[in-house]
Design a protein around this nucleic acid. Structure first.
Length: 487
RNA sequence: GGCCACGUGGCGGAGUGGUGACGCAGCGGAUUGCAAAUCCGCGUACCCCAGUUCAAUUCUGGGCGUGGCCUCCA
């Protein structure tokens, strides 16, 4: 940990400018990020905020101290899509049991995916269903929050629903930069007779007998989408906290409404001081969608050869995601993955097992400038080059340690042998033992100056995707050969 | 219709009011039995049109193009 004097500048959607992060409490920097709705495998677009905010989490931990940061990422396990999936997948089970199966399995998969991508676990991953009804520990809950909003005149009951009245909040719409009149002009909002204003949104809705529900002062029902984040953020981070993140698409309506609920319920001027939003992802130049059959899950990339004909290591995916600045659109392509895999392998080879050094200041400087991860990649190139170019062994080890520290900070250092980054598919190839035998046979031929035989062996391996590299042992001067998967 | 981003060399991708980041690919050299790896070197760019300026890829305005949001989709 270094001094907290380093200032982090972050782009704030609320003000449309970069602002210095000034934590409300340097001893507890607080961040909330909207997590997944757990009804199916997370797709690669979902991975972007997971990775981006993990980088920020790591940076905060580095600058303020690992125990001085609280990161909360919720799991949405109440949603009509979940209900539909539960009925489809477990038609014979009682609904609540079926829902539990779907959400537990999907949440576990999401957490496993996140770890494979080299992400640290957030301090808390609360589930929405644990925060619907009042809790024994007195933490904020959705029903109490809704009751507060009704009591303060910001919400009303109509037609069995509880609705938030947007006109009760003078600056409603500031985050998304829209006003109520603009919304109406769109004329795409369903006009419901029971709403006072067409833009009013649901806090609580009634559940039929075959839908999940909780008892409430307004009958058996379930919460609207936005209220869960208001409750859970307050439960773990307090009424006002430092950073709120999520995808660009969440700005409206989710974050706008969340912010309105929290501020009105708590009587605060802000919910979070800085609102951050990552850009969208396209796949091979097109919008990812099931209808274009380019829909790709994190699990597909890790465990199947559907994309690019390869299985990809999680850290390769992570690096690929960080090549573009988080606010820019990113085009997810196989070419990018190949290039990133090659780079990551080289960097990890150069850094592996070196005694770690302090994190290079220039790396921190780049990250502190609104998470300029592209800039950090440039720095990694330079650090790797300094390892290769080092004149002495001591200098080489020292440079490698700096590279390692840099890789570790942004979650790109692989503890295992670097080969795991490349050898996802070699397991289906000739196998390590066979390769070693052929390499030995080739060295024997070489020492006998039988270049034809040696080259034949090399070609054979090359056809199987194995590249050989000859070098001289630095102490004895003997010829040695190392091999790796061709890229 | 309203609102918001973005448009950099073959590809990826930062950044800046004034000597063409960086990487991948390509080319040349050192090295090598030949390669690979490594090192050294080289080339090509800032969507269009105006304006501000001594000077714009960088600021302002307009245009064109792409994408997003306005529909509980990250």
């Amino acid at each position: 940990m270094t001094s907290a004097k380093t200032t982090i500048n972050l782009y704030n959607t609320l003000t449309r400018t970069k602002e210095p992060l000034c934590p409300l409490d340097d001893n507890n920097v607080r961040m909330y990020v909207c997590g997944p709705t757990v009804y199916d495998f997370a797709h690669i677009g979902n991975a972007r905020p997971v990775i981006v905010f993990d980088v920020l989490f790591r940076l905060l931990r580095h600058l303020y101290g690992a125990d001085q940061v609280t990161y909360v990422r919720n799991i949405t396990d109440v949603d009509d899509k979940i209900n539909a999936r539960a009925v489809r997948d477990f038609p014979d089970l009682p609904l609540n049991e079926a829902i539990r199966r779907v959400t537990e399995k999907t949440a576990a998969q999401f957490i496993a995916d996140s770890e494979a991508l080299g992400c640290l676990r957030p301090n808390h991953q609360p589930r929405a269903t644990d925060f619907v009804a009042p809790r024994t520990d007195g933490k904020p809950d959705m029903i109490s929050l809704i009751a507060t909003l009704i009591g303060k005149g910001n919400a009303y009951e109509a037609n069995g629903e509880v609705l938030f009245e947007v006109t009760s909040m003078p600056d409603y719409g500031k985050l998304s930069g829209r006003n109520l009149a603009d919304n109406l002009a769109g004329a795409r909002i369903a006009v419901d007779a029971h709403k006072k204003n067409p833009a009013d949104f649901v806090l609580w809705k009634q559940s039929s007998a075959d839908e999940p529900g909780w008892d409430s002062p307004w009958g058996r029902g379930r919460p609207g989408w936005h209220i869960e984040c208001s409750a859970m953020s307050a439960a773990f981070l307090g009424e006002v906290f430092d950073i709120h993140g999520g995808g660009l698409d969440l700005i409206f309506p989710h974050h706008e409404n969340e912010l309105a609920q929290s501020r009105c319920a708590h009587g605060t001027r802000a919910m979070a001081n800085i609102w951050m939003h990552n850009g969208f992802l396209q796949v091979e130049g097109q919008k990812m969608s099931k209808s274009l059959s380019n829909f790709i899950t994190i699990n597909d990339l890790l465990e199947t050869t559907k994309f690019g004909g390869q299985k990809w290591h999680g850290r390769v995916l992570r690096l690929a995601m960080l090549t573009t600045h988080y606010r820019q659109p990113i085009d997810w392509t196989a070419d990018r993955l190949f290039e990133c895999r090659s780079l990551l392998y080289d960097w990890n080879m150069a850094a592996h097992d070196a005694p770690t050094q302090p994190v290079p200041a220039e790396l921190l400087a780049a990250l502190c400038e609104d998470l300029n991860t592209s800039g950090t990649i440039t720095i990694l190139h330079a650090l790797a080059k300094s390892v290769n170019a080092a004149a002495t062994y001591t200098a080489k080890v020292e440079a490698a340690g700096r590279l390692r520290a840099a890789l570790e900070l942004i979650g790109l250092y692989e503890e295992q042998n670097s080969d795991v980054l490349l050898r996802q598919e070699v397991r289906d190839g000739p196998g390590e033992h066979a390769i070693t035998e052929m390499v030995t046979a080739r060295l024997y031929a070489l020492n006998a100056k039988d270049f034809a035989t040696a080259d034949n062996i090399r070609n054979e391996l090359s056809e199987q995707g194995i590249a050989l590299m000859d070098y001289k042992d630095s102490e004895t001067g003997e010829r040695r050969t190392k091999w790796e998967i061709k890229r």
